[in-house]
Design a protein around this nucleic acid. Structure first.
Length: 302
DNA sequence: CTCCGGGCTC
DNA sequence: GAGCCAGGAG
């Protein structure tokens, strides 16, 4: 565990306001509460956090239940084929995450006796597990004390602590800033981590800030200064319509619809407007291990 | 820094 | 149509 950073009085006030607010207003999500942790434990947390990477909560919920019913343990998932895994991932997006989770399950079985590691560095070594997911598992599955920083946390810190509407792009420093807000007690620290994400998701949004219902309004530098606009350092997201990503998605959707069966190459996106783009998409899917290519056929990988 | 899904909202 | 979403890898 990292050594507790010294807390300022302001940091203590933030935690003192956040914890009761969270107990009162937290959404009733499936991965909160004892039933989930008791049934699925750290594996359920790892699966849910992976699905939640860049995919909204409301879309994850039904897929998570189905996934854990089919593969209730890392060993069960490790025994599946990539084709089954990619098919089950369905339309959650960024399907490389499904392969990473599959490979992580194999590593958990081979190197950790089938149990999810508790150590952050061991978690970080798993494919598809980065700074956010590693600490989310350590904190929400095992109850340890670490800073957990996601897009919500970064935005809340930018506003409350720095008085800026928008956060800078993700940086290592974010972890230190969050660590400075954490109480010494493990459970309180976990609650503050969860509450910062919840606040950003439900009250202090990217598009709208409902300061009238915010437990941190009295502490918030951005609110106190009258919501200054400030400069916007966000990077613009590439256009999706007509992109290679869209082509990849269409190829994979066709192969999922064919289940594990192979499809003739010419039948996959036969009417795609840009043939070169279609071929580029297929090649990149093969490179990622999401598609297997034969002389004239494609299929999900076995 | 760029790439990587897909659905929903403003 | 553009931005956003419990990010991660190369």
């Amino acid at each position: 565990m990292p050594c507790p950073a010294p807390r300022t009085p302001a940091a203590e006030r933030v935690a003192d306001a956040l914890i009761p607010w969270y107990r009162e207003h937290a959404r009733d999500l499936p991965w909160r509460g004892e039933a989930f942790l008791h049934s699925f434990g750290a594996w359920g947390v790892l699966v849910s956090e992976t699905m939640l990477q860049q995919t909204p909560v409301t879309r994850v919920i039904p897929h998570l239940a189905a996934w854990l019913e089919r593969w209730p343990t890392p060993a069960a998932l490790a025994a599946a084929t990539p084709a089954e895994v990619v098919h089950q991932w369905a339309n959650l997006g960024y399907p490389r995450r499904a392969l990473w989770l599959h490979r992580a399950a194999g590593s958990i079985v081979a190197e950790h006796g089938g149990r999810i590691p508790r150590d952050v560095d061991a978690l970080l070594a798993l494919p598809g597990v980065g700074e956010y997911t590693a600490r989310a598992v350590a904190v929400f599955a095992f109850g340890d004390r670490h800073p957990v920083v996601d897009t919500n946390t970064r935005r809340v810190i930018a506003r409350v602590v720095h008085g800026r509407e928008q956060p800078h792009p993700p940086a290592r420093r974010d972890l230190d800033e969050m660590a400075e807000l954490l109480p010494d007690d493990d459970q309180d620290a976990a609650a503050v981590n969860a509450a910062m994400m919840e606040l950003g998701a439900t009250v202090c949004g990217a598009r709208s800030a409902d300061c009238a219902h915010c437990p941190l309004a009295a502490e918030c530098a951005w609110h106190r200064n009258g919501h200054p606009a400030g400069e916007d350092r966000r990077r613009r997201q590439a256009r999706y319509e007509g992109s290679d990503r869209q082509a990849r998605g269409a190829v994979l959707r066709a192969l999922r619809a064919a289940s594990a069966h192979a499809l003739p190459v010419d039948a996959v996106l036969a009417d795609w407007p840009d043939a070169a783009q279609r071929d580029r998409a297929i090649q990149s899917l093969v490179d990622d291990g999401l598609v297997e290519a034969f002389a004239h056929e494609l299929r999900l990988p076995r």
